[in-house]
Design a protein around this nucleic acid. Sequence first.
DNA 1: ACTTGACCTTCCAGTTATGGGAACCCATCT
DNA 2: AGATGGGTTCCCATAACTGGAAGGTCAAGT
Lengths: 128, 128
Amino acid sequence: MNISQAATASGLPAKTIRYYEDIGLIRPARSANGYRAFSDTDAHKLAFLSRARSLGFSIEDCRTLLALWEDRSRASGDVRKLAKDHLDEIDRKLAELHQMRDTLAHLVNCCAGDDRPDCPIIDKLAKS
Amino acid sequence: MNISQAATASGLPAKTIRYYEDIGLIRPARSANGYRAFSDTDAHKLAFLSRARSLGFSIEDCRTLLALWEDRSRASGDVRKLAKDHLDEIDRKLAELHQMRDTLAHLVNCCAGDDRPDCPIIDKLAKS
DNA sequence: ACTTGACCTTCCAGTTATGGGAACCCATCT
DNA sequence: AGATGGGTTCCCATAACTGGAAGGTCAAGT
């Protein structure tokens, strides 16, 4: 399988796949012409990575998850801990974003948004 | 006012303040010895930037907001539009994060997290 | 055989908003 | 004079790609 097929199969851009090889997440074989030759296993790994990334796991977390996936004697506790830590991080970000959102939504609501200069948004930024 | 005073007054690290000068957000005067000399106006701008950044506005948005702040004949509609667009962006991110969180929380809940290898988290990543 | 166009390759640079650290100048106190 | 604690510039690194240049390869059409 060439890189564009692997890209289609995994849902990842070819550029990203090359990058993943660069940083050692995958090691596809090479054909005689120098093209990357992706096995089904490679394609599965890429799909795995694509799903893990879409859950927001960092590349380094993905590297660990990939290793755990391939380790038949893994402890599910290790996976769970990784996921739980990530979940906690997401909860932190959610709280922060929610705070921003509420403040911002309030300000946007208060602002007339017309041609006049008076603006509670600017006022808020100007003096806390 | 030297940079460390400006930093304390604005809540921004000195490094960040130098960076903001680099990219032209502020233009503090210089003392004879080469030190940056921050006026009260500079300090106010920095505090303004600090608050805008803490609401998640990008640096480029901050640049625009600063210009609007200084423009006594601004239209509040311009400010409101910027804030509204940003709010919409935050809402998009919130929705995305929320989706991630729910999926992840479900998986974490399903996983025994013990010494055995069976793990619904890995299973989910391995085959959608 | 030749050319065209779609692939593929590597390498380099840019993105966002800083943070770290080196090497060096300046100010103040003992 | 030397120590300490500012300040300065400059360069590198971060995360996770994305874009683009320069060039090799392949399959098809003329």
